[in-house]
């Protein structure tokens, strides 16, 4: 292998067909309100964690739906589960359970349960 001083840049494109959508499937089954998110961003706007960091629950949910889950595991830990997002959500998405179910899906994938 030759060192060229650069590498093939990673594609930013979401490759939906290849992406792992297990977390999404798991959350959709266990918290159906996950399906009704319209990405309005109210959750992120009110988020306690987003006050201090770039944690973006709206985007996180979307990334899970698209199967872009590489960073989700670390990102999701930033949530304090305080519930402001749930109170603010206009679509009644059970955001706290979405977080909990994402956690569980990640753990189950690591344990090869799903």
């Amino acid at each position: 292998m030759i060192e060229f001083g650069y590498n093939i840049a990673k594609d930013r494109q979401i490759d939906f067909d290849k992406n792992d959508k297990r977390i999404s499937t798991y959350v959709r089954e266990n918290e159906p309100s996950f399906k009704t998110c319209i990405s309005c961003g109210t959750c992120t706007a009110t988020c306690s964690a987003a006050n201090f960091t770039d944690f973006n629950f709206r985007k996180l949910q979307l990334m899970v739906r698209r199967g872009e889950t590489l960073e989700v595991k670390e990102e999701i830990k930033k949530c304090m589960l305080c519930g402001k997002c749930y109170l603010a959500c206009p679509r009644g998405v059970n955001t706290r359970n979405v977080i909990i179910q994402i956690n569980q899906a990640i753990e189950k994938i690591e344990n090869h349960d799903i």
Binding site: F4, G5, Y6, N7, I8, A9, K10, D11
Partner: peptide, 14 residues
């Protein structure tokens, strides 16, 4: 720009 060549080769690769 050499630093950007990774993008160039990524396009061909794609």
């Amino acid at each position: 720009v050499q630093a950007n060549r990774g993008y160039s080769i990524a396009c061909s690769h794609k």
